[in-house]
Design a protein around this nucleic acid. Structure first.
Lengths: 162, 162
DNA sequence: CGCATAATCTTATGCGCATAACGAATGCGG
DNA sequence: CCGCATTCGTTATGCGCATAAGATTATGCG
């Protein structure tokens, strides 16, 4: 394994992360949203109402952050928080109509951005890109520090080498 | 443009960013480093001594952050800060021997991780991945908010579509 | 030369998110 | 029925980094 390649890969991911976050903040500022709140809205819109623990899991962030985000989004009228009748500890979170409209609006912003990116890539690269990113994600997220990363064997493969 | 594709791409990048950062923090903790400090060391090791303004530019972070990072790395003995004789405002930053050794050590950590990732991807994907990431980075980083992103025309293309 | 403008670095302050510690509710094994 | 570990949510605190404002030096121009 070429050390320079690993280094380039590492730096490329780091820069992409920074720029993506910066651009997201820029796009969302006019809407009065932050990056984490965007992710929460989109997640709710994708998978429907859930309690905060499930949300923090899906978003890859921690429960206290979810508490803050849901409080703020509720104050803005984008979501509803209601106690779960089946579990008095949990509070389930759902989009309001305003929140659903906002989620659609956000998605439209990213579409125009994705179009620019897609225009610069080959068709097959575009096709494989989501799967590749997912593989990179599962691998970089080593389950235990000094163990081979999950093979991500079943759902997402990219013509495994050999 | 399929809205679902743009959505998937957006979320994939977001998740990769989170996981990459988390893993980096995990790898660097034993070395007493943070993510930004790692980037600074590697950048210095790649391109040689520079002043802090140039560093903040290359790292994609802001000058005050560079001030804090260089102070801490200097206290740890990994870098040297010296006034620039040609410009009394600037302070140029250089790696010490200890810093250079540390940079090599860091790179070795990422190599083992990159190996796992490469093993899950096809040879041609691996070959194009850095360029693809760079294209995504330049595109996501729209120079001005409502203007077509830079074509990244000259150096990095990935068989442009059509 | 003299002065306005810009560039470099630093300090002060705020924001987003994490980790730690806690109270409340659940469910399981005795 | 009763401990007791577990899970959910919140509060308290800290860290990394950004933005805003200030001090010092460079630079361009009348």
């Amino acid at each position: 394994m070429d050390p320079d390649y690993a280094d380039a890969l590492n730096q490329a991911i780091r820069l992409l992360s920074l720029r993506h976050r910066a651009r997201a903040a820029q796009l969302l500022a006019p809407l009065g949203l932050h990056v984490g709140q965007e992710a929460l809205l989109l997640e709710l819109d994708r998978t429907g109402p859930r309690n905060q623990a499930q949300l923090s899991d899906a978003l890859g962030c921690e429960p206290p952050s979810v508490t803050l985000m849901t409080r703020k989004l509720e104050a803005a009228g984008h979501i509803r928080r209601a106690p779960d009748p089946a579990d008095k500890r949990a509070t389930i979170v759902a989009l309001t109509d305003s929140g659903k409209a906002l989620a659609d609006q956000i998605r439209r912003l990213w579409v125009t951005l994705a179009e620019e990116t897609v225009r610069s890539l080959s068709a097959e690269t575009v096709e494989r890109l989501p799967a590749v990113l997912q593989i990179m994600t599962t691998n970089v997220d080593g389950k235990s520090p000094n163990q081979p990363a999950a093979q991500s064997a079943h759902s997402t493969t990219d013509r495994p080498l050999t």
